[in-house]
Simulated scan of single mutants.
Amino acid sequence: MSLVRKLLPPLVSGTLFGAGLTLSGMTNPARVRGFLDVFGAWDPTLAFVMGSAVLVMAVAWRIRSRMGTPIFAERFSLPDRKDLDGRLITGSILFGVGWGLAGLCPGPAVASLALSPLSVLPFVVAMLAGMGIQRFIAAKPLRRQAVPE
């Protein structure tokens, strides 16, 4: 597979995703925090963005089920129940707490670099540091306690 054919789909889809996040206002941390403030000045915008994403994914899932192989890959890479483990759950909790505190997650943070790089740079640096720490921890084998016989 040529490099262009390998890199073009993620570049186009990432650019489209970033544009969608920007147009929907999801790069504004106050909007995300407003969605999470259910008992205060609740902002339902994120619910509409999530609903739209679910609809698009439902259509994509139906199309995928009719395809033999993906267009830009050799096979589909789909999650299964075996992917659900303690590390994933812990990471999800940390992601949610960080998202609630900062009002940003990786997609909007990267998209915000184009609009206001100085205000989002500390978050992106912390995010990259966290990714590096996770990679370091994941490289270490899990220690299992010996079970007495």
Rank of each mutant, 00 (worst) to 15 (best):
M57K: 13
D83F: 02
R81A: 04
V59I: 11
L78C: 06
T90V: 15
R87Q: 14
I89P: 01
L88R: 00
R75P: 10
D80Q: 04
L88Q: 02
S77E: 14
D80I: 03
T90N: 05
I89A: 09
K82W: 09
S92P: 00
L84E: 02
R64W: 03
M67L: 15
M57Y: 13
A60V: 12
M67R: 15
D83T: 04
G68P: 03
F76H: 13
G91V: 00
R64M: 07
S65R: 15
L55C: 14
L78E: 10
D85H: 07
F72H: 13
A53V: 10
R62K: 10
G91F: 01
T69M: 15
L88Y: 00
A58N: 09
G68W: 09
I93Q: 11
V54D: 05
S92R: 02
L84D: 01
M67Q: 15
D83P: 00
A73I: 08
G91P: 01
M57D: 13
V56A: 10
R66V: 07
D85P: 01
M67P: 05
S77R: 14
A73S: 14
V54S: 05
V56F: 05
F72Y: 14
K82F: 07
S77G: 07
M57I: 11
A73L: 11
I89Q: 02
